[in-house]
């Protein structure tokens, strides 16, 4: 199971890398999204995979790893999702500005703006 998800993370990561190496900016954004998703999964599974044991107490039994999933990676991932969303939203606005200004989505043509 762990090995299975490790492979999934690896594939998503590879997809993300391939995406950011494209010249089309839309694909670069897709690459960034895939990268952040694979990393979120990586952090998430660092706490181990637990089914049906959310980190929420019932108020009676004492909390322990046998009854609850590790809350720390979850808190980290929650932050990471929101920050990742912030990044992607910003990149999307940036791309939209560039596109409406230069009418191109090719990163190689961004050289034109330097001069």
């Amino acid at each position: 199971m762990e090995a299975f998800y490790a492979i999934l993370i690896g594939i998503l990561f590879a997809g993300g890398i391939y995406g950011i190496l494209r010249r089309s900016m839309v694909r670069v954004i897709v690459g960034i999204i895939l990268l952040s998703q694979s990393i979120n999964l990586l952090v998430f599974f660092s706490g181990g995979a637990n089914r049906g044991k959310p980190a929420i107490m019932d108020g009676e039994t004492a909390p322990s790893f046998s009854t609850m999933a590790d809350p720390l990676p979850q808190a980290l991932v929650l932050t990471a999702i929101v920050i990742g969303f912030g990044l992607i939203a910003f990149v999307i606005v940036l791309f939209q500005r560039v596109f409406s200004r230069l009418q191109t989505d090719d990163t190689q043509e961004l050289f034109k703006t330097d001069s």
Binding site: F44, N50, R51, P54, Q74, L78, I88, Q96, F99
Partner: peptide, 25 residues
């Protein structure tokens, strides 16, 4: 499925918003 309801809700909302923003863009 793997015991993180908060994350699941957040992920769904974020995914929806990303798609909406992407469409606009």
């Amino acid at each position: 499925v793997y015991s993180a309801p908060d994350l699941a809700i957040t992920q769904i909302l974020v995914e929806t918003l990303i798609v909406v923003l992407f469409v606009l863009c």
